[in-house]
Design a protein around this nucleic acid. Structure first.
Lengths: 267, 267
DNA sequence: ACCTGAACACCGTTCAAGT
DNA sequence: ACCTGAACACCGTTCAAGT
């Protein structure tokens, strides 16, 4: 076992997953805490995820993590090269939480779901992930995201899009439409949920207060009005209900859009 | 003029735009550099945008900014309360770059464009903004975004969605579908463009290299294969061409989806 | 093989002091 | 009214040294 990738003249890497030695220090064996301090990559990654969930990306630091693990800040550097590498590990780890259909369901026609259900299911799972771990969104943008769990998700999505029967050159556009939408939606939603939680308010209370503050400013009152109409029309009593409705309608729109493209192709 | 919102017992604010005194220190008068150092909010904001463009959000710091302005780090704090406030100002500033249709075009039926063209135009503008300023994406998620320019954009988008003729309770879902998609798409695209630039490579070269590296790893070769099919099928010779095609197809999909919903409503 | 302490070059922000 | 210097409580990371 070699110290994390020979620091001296480390080559520019784009991802943890492309390390020279992929021996996954302490990650593979199943056994844990051979080490004096009980440290290994898995435990470090788990703790990282827990801290990110609890305190957010901005407050996360190697020193804070080390304290949580009861070691010096520098001990962690035996297992990961940089903070970014660690974040990449954490990112892929939570992609492992996704509840994905079996890979070989393709061969079994009985369990082969309709592409509409598949897309809706994957969208719902991805959305929940982004909301549960609000720190995932900024990281998805910044890393290559080729860890095993992220890959599994990507491939599942690709299979679902293939099942639509769209011509190949349109598949990537459709994939983008659906999952970039979910990414954007989940990002905003996750952030809002986070803000409410750390303000110790319900989502409705926070929403009402924010609306109130903005309306109180005379120079904004006018601008808010137009939005208010839209709000009222959305129906649903709680913020959550409105959001569920919006999400469902947007997904229905995409499904309808795909169907329209299919109809065009066939004619 | 009062020092930035009375630091001592500053109340928890959610946005720069909700300051007690909205006298926009140094921002309003048109004249600049009454101050000994020539500092004012506008100049600070401009320099911030320039630095964020050139070096990215991660490298931006109050000290780096101060150096660029030839003042002490602390001088800036006379004009803005916190780093976050400054970022919020920068964010709204670049929303001012958007080329939006006249607000009163609604009343003039001759210049009133089709909602399809309006949505496509707004989507294209928003996408360009996210790519031109890659740091915008993470900030859109984290701030309330109620500055005058952001507001103007939101209202323009709302008007366009209204023009579809969708029933009010479906308008927000449609709005989300289109613009959360653009947000996701522009985020990924902007990041990729940034990476290529800072690696000093063309987009195609960077793409080829990334593909090559990943393929070289035996445990990824299999996973990449499925993606490769999709790539080849997309057609277009350059990365940029593929991306344009994907974007156009995705937007076509949404427009078709909205039309399908309209047809459903009318029947 | 694994872990530590001290050190370097940074942060955002406060505070008292200058002009 | 505007700007500065010193200071506080942090960062990520390196390096030489411990066991």
């Amino acid at each position: 076992m070699v110290k994390a990738a020979d620091r001296a003249k480390r080559p520019a890497r784009t991802s943890v997953w492309l390390e020279e030695k992929a021996t996954a220090r302490g990650g593979g064996g199943g056994r844990r805490s051979d080490q004096p301090s009980g440290l290994d990559r898995d435990r470090i990654t788990e703790t990282t995820v827990r801290l990110l969930d609890a305190e957010g990306l901005a407050k996360f630091s190697m020193r804070r993590l080390a304290a949580e693990l009861n070691v010096t800040a520098m001990s962690v550097y035996w297992y990961v090269d940089t903070k970014d590498d660690l974040l990449e590990l954490a990112l892929d780890a939570v992609f492992g939480e996704l509840d994905l259909p079996e890979a070989d369901s393709e061969s079994d026609p009985d369990t082969k779901a309709d592409w509409r259900d598949q897309l809706r299911e994957l969208a719902a799972e991805y959305r929940k992930l982004l909301v549960r771990h609000a720190w995932v969104s900024p990281l998805v943008g910044t890393f290559l995201n080729i860890g095993p769990n992220s890959m599994r998700f990507s491939l599942t999505v690709q299979r679902a899009v293939k099942n639509t029967g769209l011509p190949p050159h349109e598949q990537m556009g459709a994939l983008s439409a659906v999952f970039q939408f979910v990414y954007g939606f989940g990002t905003i939603e996750g952030h809002f949920v986070q803000r409410c939680a750390s303000a110790g308010m319900t989502q409705d209370a926070y929403f009402q207060q924010a609306m109130g503050t903005v309306k109180a400013e005379p120079r904004f009152a006018e601008m808010v009005e137009s939005s208010a109409e839209l709000m009222d029309a959305r129906g649903g009593d709680t913020v959550e209900e409105m959001r569920e409705r919006d999400f469902r309608i947007a997904l229905d729109l995409m499904v309808a859009g795909i169907e329209a493209m299919l109809a065009r192709t066939r004619s």
